[in-house]
Amino acid sequence: MADRSSHFSAPDQTGHEYESLSRIGSGAYGTVYKAKDKRTNRVVALKKVCVALTEDGIPMNTLREIGLLKQLNAHEHPNIVRLLDICYGHRTGKELIMYLVFEHVEQDLGSYIERNPRGFNTIQIKNLSREILNGVDFLHSNRIVHRDLKPQNLLVTFDGHIKLADFGLAKTYDFDMKLTSVVVTLWYRAPEVLLGLPYATPVDVWSIGCIIVELYNLTPLFCGTSEGDQLTTIFRELGRPSETDWPKDNISIKWESFRSIDSTGYMHNFSGNICETAKDLIMRMLTFDPIKRISAMEALNHTYFTEEPINT
């Protein structure tokens, strides 16, 4: 429906009606529209979600995820994008279209970086980093792992504040879009994910580490072309992990297969005017072993954030 024309409305029972203005983004699994709440004229972002109905109605995992989104939303965390409403679109046989109505945020961090070719000053970087960590720490304290932190999923308000988007929902909804050519980026993936190991909250800290470096460098840190290449790229930069750090259980990839890579990377040659405390924090976030990796909460208490600001 929405794909055929960009003008549609999703009337719901609470009396809101939305008129689509344009398509903002379509990721690998969903489409986000910019729309107007016809009653209040407020501009919103509609995320179209396609739910496969089962014999017993709306599946449990969908209910779980939406319940969670609503519950988190009630906390009104400053660094989490606000969910305003949920409404139904058409129901076609075994599918139910739902629209998650979010507050509309100016842009995502990806385009924010693109639009600032001259880069950010250290204060800006510190503030952005702190806000990202704040939002992620909030998710973690609610037992949620984002799993897909990247600049495109971090929204930046008109006045430069961070709001996390695109968490909590399974990436399996929009079946018809699954086979499109959109490539899911690997660049922010933690090594344990690439190695096919069980993972938890530390994967998000890894991603933030990559994003903070990107704020300094204005270009992604680890640009692998495949899962294997991504690991190789990471190890070249950071140095190959020691054999003792290499996971012992449930791992099919052998430590030996990276033998040719040096154990000291060239990551310490940070480009730009990055200070020592920032470097220290970043290296703690990019620690190979997820157990040893700094947590979001610990990161917020790192000297980088607590020290007196110095003018540079």
Binding site: V145, R147, F167
Partner: peptide
């Protein structure tokens, strides 16, 4: 045991709150 929600695709140290 219910399926692990996709945003916690691996065994987390504990069960999510609503499981």
């Amino acid at each position: 045991a219910p399926p692990v929600p996709p945003h916690m695709a691996a065994p987390p140290p504990g069960p999510p709150p609503n499981i």
